[in-house]
Design a protein around this nucleic acid. Structure first.
Lengths: 127, 127
DNA sequence: CTGGATCCGCTAGGATACTG
DNA sequence: CAGTATCCTAGCGGATCCAG
């Protein structure tokens, strides 16, 4: 084996490709869409996502879905019905990511009160 | 107890306050700064962060640090030396978040090759 | 050294309208 | 139903200069 050791990535380096992934996950709607797909039972239709993820615009949903699909996190299945129905679901890769993100989601649920408290305190100092 | 059950947040709802937290964590530089602070041993100076997080601009670092401090994730300690030295470190709350984010970081390291492969495939389809 | 102040370009993303 | 096409704007973030 020429490269027995996989390259050790370093997020802090500018050229690290994982930065792109972090950016994608951190993009405004990615997280919510992944959560929605992960908590839904089975494939989810475009219009259902549009309703599920409150506040998202059609354009944002479409472009984010395409980006996630490009990364291999989401799979798109078009059924030749009339009118056409398109279903989205997480790939195994997307599932594994969703699992990690679920921890983050849980963390925010657990600590949102604390954070809000800190914010109020911080903002109060300048009054 | 009047409220034995803490409110059940739902990220998918528009008014859910945790969306703000996700946005903050997902902001361009938050993740990297937290990682940098978490992997450093002990408090880290402003200039060290500036060097550690490659590509970040002074303004972005300052504003992101302030936001993280406001959320109670980062603590700022100013030492009255001359010239002044300021040190940043994670609060216990920030530490607990860093732990969660470490899993995400690990995930990206483990799966970046896979993702890149998917991207190449996806992009190749339209050529 | 640690930022704040200022200017400014860029683009993600919102609103709206339209199509297969 | 599942998007695309256009237009448009707020604001993030970069560069530079300045200050305590």
């Amino acid at each position: 084996m020429l490269r027995p050791d996989p390259p050790k990535w370093d997020l802090l380096r500018q050229e690290c490709p994982t930065r792109e992934v972090i950016a994608r996950v951190g993009a405004k709607w990615s997280f919510l869409i992944i959560v929605s797909l992960a908590t839904a039972d089975g494939p989810t239709r475009y219009s259902d996502l549009l309703n599920s993820v409150e506040g998202i615009a059609s354009k944002a949903l479409a472009s984010t879905l395409r980006a996630l699909e490009r990364d291999g996190l989401v799979s798109r299945t078009k059924k030749p019905t009339l009118p056409p129905t398109v279903e989205y679901s997480l790939t195994p890769l997307g599932d594994s990511l969703a699992e990690v993100l679920a921890h983050l989601q849980r963390w925010t649920y657990d600590n949102i009160a604390d954070i809000k408290e800190h914010q109020r305190f911080y903002d109060g100092l300048s009054s």
